[in-house]
C-alpha cells in the first residue's frame, strides 16, 4: 500500500501538467472560432446587426451580468444572475422529480417481470412523443406558471433515467443477489443494498442524458410558456433585435449545461470510487 501511496505523491506535478495540457488543447478550437468570428465581423463580411462581433457580445454580457439596473427600462442590465437562477431552479426542481420517479420505476421494471410487462410498453409508447409536443397540454393544465416548465423537464429527463435504471437493474450480477439472499437479506434489503448500488453506473448514464434534455426542456418552455429565465430572455431579446444578448444567452445556457454535467460527473466519480481502484496484484 505504501508503494501505491508514494507513487501518487510523485505523480502530482505530472498530473498537474497533464491537466493543464488538456485544458490548453480544449481551448484551441473555441478560441480560433471566436477569433475568426471577430475577424469576419470587423471586415464587414457579416452584417453587424445580424451577428454582432464577440467584443460587442462580451460588452453586452458584462452589462447584463454586472450592470446596475436603472429604473427597469432596460431589462438587459444586471438581470443575468436572476434569469440564470430562474432557469437553473426549474431544472433542479424538475430533474429531482424525474429522479425520484424514474429511478424507483426503473428498478421495479428491471426487477419484476410482471411490472415490466405492465409498465414498460406504456413507457415505450409515450417515449417517442417529443417534449415540444407536450407544450400545449402543459400550458392547458398549468397555465404559464412555473410548474409548466418543471413538468416538461420532468417528462424529458424521466425517459433516459427510467430506461437506464431498468437496464442497470437487469444487468446486476445474479450471484450478488444470491449472496445477499443467502446472508438473510429480504427483498427490500436486496433492492436497496445490492441492486441500487450495482445499478448506479447505469443510473448515472441516465442522469447525464436526462440532465441534457432537462436544459433543452427548460429553454423551450421558457421561450413559449413561462415569462422568465434564460429561455424567455433568448426569445424576448430576439424580438427587440438584441442579437448580442441572444448570443450571450446561448453561451450562458451552454455554460450552465456544461457545469451541471460536471457536477453530476463529480458525484458519479465519488459514488463509484470503488470502481476506479486498481487491483494490487494485477
Amino acid at each position: 500500500m505504501s508503494k501505491a501511496e508514494s507513487k501518487t505523491v510523485s505523480l502530482v506535478p505530472a498530473q498537474l501538467w497533464g491537466r493543464l495540457r488538456k485544458t490548453v488543447l480544449a481551448l484551441v478550437l473555441p478560441v480560433t472560432l471566436v477569433w475568426l468570428w471577430q475577424l469576419a465581423g470587423t471586415d464587414g463580411a457579416i452584417a453587424g446587426g445580424a451577428l454582432p462581433t464577440p467584443d460587442r457580445v462580451w460588452a453586452a454580457w458584462m452589462k447584463w451580468a454586472f450592470g446596475t439596473s436603472t429604473f427597469g427600462l432596460n431589462p438587459y442590465i444586471g438581470t443575468w444572475t436572476q434569469s440564470l437562477w430562474f432557469s437553473a431552479g426549474r431544472v433542479v426542481y424538475g430533474f429531482a422529480i424525474a429522479i425520484a420517479v424514474g429511478v424507483p420505476i426503473g428498478m421495479i421494471i428491471g426487477w419484476s417481470k410482471l411490472a415490466s410487462a405492465m409498465i414498460d410498453p406504456t413507457i415505450q409508447w409515450l417515449r417517442p412523443v417529443p417534449i415540444t409536443a407536450w407544450l400545449p397540454i402543459s400550458i392547458a393544465i398549468f397555465g404559464i406558471r412555473d410548474f409548466g416548465a418543471v413538468f416538461l423537464i420532468t417528462i424529458g429527463a424521466f425517459y433516459p433515467i427510467v430506461i437506464n435504471t431498468t437496464q442497470g437493474t437487469r444487468d446486476v450480477d445474479k450471484n450478488w443477489i444470491r449472496a445477499a439472499l443467502m446472508m438473510g437479506a429480504g427483498q427490500r434489503d436486496v433492492l436497496t443494498r445490492v441492486v441500487l448500488p450495482a445499478a448506479l453506473p447505469s443510473i448515472f448514464t441516465g442522469l447525464r442524458i436526462g440532465l441534457g434534455i432537462a436544459w433543452t426542456a427548460v429553454i423551450v418552455s421558457e421561450m413559449v410558456a413561462v415569462k422568465s429565465g434564460l429561455g424567455y430572455v433568448l426569445w424576448d431579446a430576439y424580438y427587440v433585435g438584441r442579437m448580442d444578448i441572444v448570443i450571450a444567452d446561448m453561451v450562458s445556457i451552454g455554460l450552465m449545461g456544461f457545469l451541471s454535467d460536471l457536477l453530476i460527473v463529480s458525484i458519479e466519480i465519488w459514488a463509484l470510487r470503488w470502481r476506479r481502484l486498481q487491483s494490487f496484484d494485477a
Binding site: 445477499a180 443467502m182 446472508m183 434489503d189 443494498r193 445490492v194
Partner: peptide
C-alpha cells in the same frame, strides 16, 4: 437462508463494500 452459508466460485463479494462491510453484511441485514 443464513443457515446455509454459500461460498461462490468467484467469491461474488459486493464490490462497493469493504472487507469488513462484506463480512458483517449478513448479521446486519
Amino acid at each position: 437462508g443464513p443457515d446455509r452459508g454459500v461460498v461462490f466460485q468467484e467469491a461474488s463479494l459486493l464490490p462497493w463494500l469493504t472487507v469488513w462491510e462484506n463480512v458483517v453484511f449478513g448479521p446486519k441485514v
